[in-house]
Design a protein around this nucleic acid. Structure first.
Lengths: 204, 204
DNA sequence: TAGATTGTTAATCGATTAACAATC
DNA sequence: TAGATTGTTAATCGATTAACAATC
């Protein structure tokens, strides 16, 4: 899992290299670029089978594709967004979603003022339609950008509706069964870590 | 640093306990609640000095305050937000900022349509006013919620202006000098990790 | 005092790095 | 073939867990 967490970063760098037309790279060269050891790079890639070639290095587009596949980006997972507030808006408009092969197919809210409005061509639906929508569409991921107080209840409904992935932006931890994946984006935690670092710097 | 990353989570749980009126907790009880070992909890808290008492456990409000101080939350750090797009909006309205003692004191953008508008009572300023603003105000943190292409340039300006903390939401890594702190929120990375987990679940 | 629970040391575990033989 | 660079094993390092003496 510690290796998995590093894959997106590799993916990012390899994508960058591809854009620059670099076709081949050694673990040593990538190591310098990324600020990690060459040993770790080789070790990491080897967890998933040998993507390199002795005496040559790694083929960039090939490695990029392999990592993309490991991450499941080739599946074109579909997303719905629960909560059409500012964060919901930001997510719908988040360009990298599409770039990485994800598709936003629905937005839900419980606010009558928001229901029926359109964000980036997608109509905001009443949250009461959630279960129907999930029956009629394949929904892989639900992004939770709604108030803390409502998130656990909604998560329960989503799991019942068969959704396997929760992307949680609310400041709560949600217990999920083993066959449901969850990723938390705790902005607060990140800001507190930053606060610690600044404090440390100011002390010295 | 690995301990620091865990502090916000402790802080969250302790805040919750306080709300529930719990005044005292043992490492064993907290361990059960949080799903980590009691040993780790004691080890972690001891990195910063003994906050507990043998035979009693930890005093919740006291421990909460101590962790808050370690994280620097008592400083009331001020923030400016660069980029008044959806993410910028979401950040300004992010309730937890205030709750954790942070203050948004400025918003900047380069879009004439946005400049002069008001978000949560704060006027969006022209990005060209950035340096002046930093001279006239103490700015501790800049949140970077602007397009990728502009972020490195702006980061340079912010660092020159003396800002010590960057909270980066753009999908780029930014090199900073030793006396500047940076925290990245890479939504993409988080989504890719989720994608991996879902793929794994679907395989089994 | 006796019981509870920490602080802290020692043991274990896992992750990172170094080294080098295999091989392109 | 010779040089380069991986794949992989072994060594090191750091983090987690277990254990228990100190002490409230």
């Amino acid at each position: 899992m510690v290796v998995i967490k590093r894959l997106p970063r590799y993916y990012r760098y390899l994508g960058e290299l591809m854009k620059q037309g670099v076709n081949r790279i050694s673990s040593a060269a990538l190591s310098e670029k990324m600020g990690v050891t060459a040993s770790q790079i080789r070790q990491d890639f080897n967890c998933f089978g040998g993507f390199g070639q002795q005496g040559y290095g790694y083929n960039v587009p090939n490695l990029y594709a392999e990592i993309g596949e490991i991450l499941g980006l080739n599946h074109g997972y579909s997303l719905i967004i629960i909560g059409a507030g500012n964060m919901g808006h930001a997510l719908v408009n988040y360009a990298n979603l599409e770039k990485r092969g994800f598709k936003v197919i629905g937005i839900f809210d419980n606010d009558a003022k928001k229901i029926g409005t359109t964000i980036k061509g997608i109509v905001v639906s009443d949250i009461s339609k959630l279960e129907d929508f999930c029956k009629q569409n394949t929904v892989d991921i639900a992004a939770l950008s709604l108030p803390r107080s409502e998130v656990r209840d909604i998560a329960k409904r989503l799991i019942s509706a068969g959704i396997k992935g929760l992307w949680n932006f609310s400041y709560t931890e949600i217990a999920v069964p083993d066959d449901v994946a969850i990723e938390n984006v705790h902005l607060s935690d990140s800001l507190m870590t930053l606060s610690y670092k600044i404090t440390k710097i100011n002390e010295n």
